[in-house]
Structures are given as structure tokens and as C-alpha cells.
């Protein structure tokens, strides 16, 4: 199966449909987060529910295919909820956290919770780096400790949920075979 997957580099229609469905799920989750402003202790902290779908895709499909879903989600989000500036932040955070999560899943074969926590931390680090270059002040770094702790909490929450979803073996194996 694995070999067959590597030989067949083109996306099958079934797989493409599945990826599109996952993209839709990621998009809906970020929409839900956008309309329900969750009560947060630290201003600016979000749970990042859309990462649920990205993480799930990363565990089931390849890195390349997950990257497609991620880029689709970032562009759609920026078009509907944001502007050009928020696109910079979400790209910086999204891509940095994706790289870290991909390394954790592929090289360390890490648990979902560990992957999700690191993804959460690096999402915030990426956004801080972007903010540093956009508003040109070193003061943004003072937010980093708060954001890292928030990222750990949000990442743990997402990781637990994905772990629960991945336990439904029959459904997961069906999706994998597409």
C-alpha cells in the first residue's frame, strides 16, 4: 500500500474530494471560532480549532497533501474574514507551525498531543516574528511568554480531540485507502 502510494504521485479523484472536504471542515471550524468569540483570559489568544483538521490530515495523508489543505484554508480565511495584513500573520504562523508539526509527525512519529502542542507554540512564535517585522518594535517579544503558555493549552486541547478522532479505526482506515 505504502509503495503503491509513493509510485502514484497524482492525486486520485477520491483523495482530492476527501482533501476538499477536510478543507471545508477546517474552514467551518475557523468560521465557528470567528463568530463565537470564546471567553479568553489573555487578549489575542485563540484555540485555533482549524488546526484540528490540519492535524488530522497530517496523520492520515502525506505532508504535501496537507500543505495543499493548509494553503487553501489560509487563503480562504484571508479572503472572507481578514485583509492583506492578517494574511501575513496567518501565513507566518500557519506555515511555521505546519513545518514543525510535519517534522514531529514524520521524523519523530510523535503523539498527536505532543505534535499539537509544538504546533501551537510555533504558530504563536511565527505570528510574533511577523508582527516584529510589520510594526517594527521589539516590544512584541514581551507578549511571547503569555502566547507560548496559551499555545500549549490550546495545542493540548486540539491534540486530545484529534487523538480521540483517530481512535475510530474503521473510519480512519477507510479514509487512508482512498
Amino acid at each position: 500500500m505504502q509503495q503503491h502510494k509513493q509510485q502514484n504521485k497524482k492525486l486520485s479523484t477520491k483523495k482530492l474530494t476527501m482533501l476538499a472536504l477536510l478543507l471545508a471542515i477546517a474552514f467551518i471550524l475557523s468560521w465557528i471560532e470567528y463568530i463565537i468569540s470564546l471567553p479568553v483570559i489573555i487578549p489575542g489568544i485563540k484555540i485555533g480549532l482549524a488546526n484540528l483538521a490540519i492535524l488530522f490530515t497530517l496523520y492520515i495523508f502525506s505532508v504535501k497533501e496537507t500543505f495543499l489543505v493548509l494553503i487553501g484554508r489560509l487563503i480562504l480565511n484571508a479572503l472572507l474574514f481578514g485583509n492583506a495584513l492578517s494574511l501575513i500573520y496567518s501565513f507566518a504562523g500557519g506555515i511555521l507551525s505546519f513545518i514543525v508539526m510535519a517534522i514531529f509527525v514524520r521524523y519523530f512519529k510523535a503523539h498527536t498531543i505532543a505534535t499539537s502542542i509544538c504546533g501551537g507554540i510555533f504558530h504563536n512564535i511565527g505570528q510574533i516574528i511577523a508582527a516584529f517585522f510589520v510594526i517594527k518594535t521589539s516590544l512584541v517579544w514581551t507578549y511571547l511568554p503569555y502566547l507560548i503558555i496559551g499555545g500549549i493549552a490550546a495545542g493540548a486541547f486540539n491534540g486530545i480531540i484529534v487523538n480521540k478522532i483517530l481512535k475510530y479505526d474503521d473510519i480512519v482506515s477507510k479514509i487512508k485507502c482512498l
Partner: peptide, 28 residues
């Protein structure tokens, strides 16, 4: 749109700051 600068509340000492990302504004 995000109103984070409003939520930050009152600041009065040197270790505090307000940053509004969309407006690229910093109050130090």
C-alpha cells in the same frame, strides 16, 4: 476588527504596553 487593544485595558507602569496590530500602533 480584533479589538485586542481595547481589551488590554488601562496601563500605567513602564513594563506595560498596548499594541494594535492592524493599525501598527504601539503605546509604550
Amino acid at each position: 476588527p480584533d479589538k485586542i487593544c481595547e481589551q488590554k485595558g488601562k496601563i500605567s507602569s513602564t513594563n506595560q504596553n498596548i499594541i494594535c496590530l492592524p493599525a501598527k500602533t504601539v503605546i509604550e
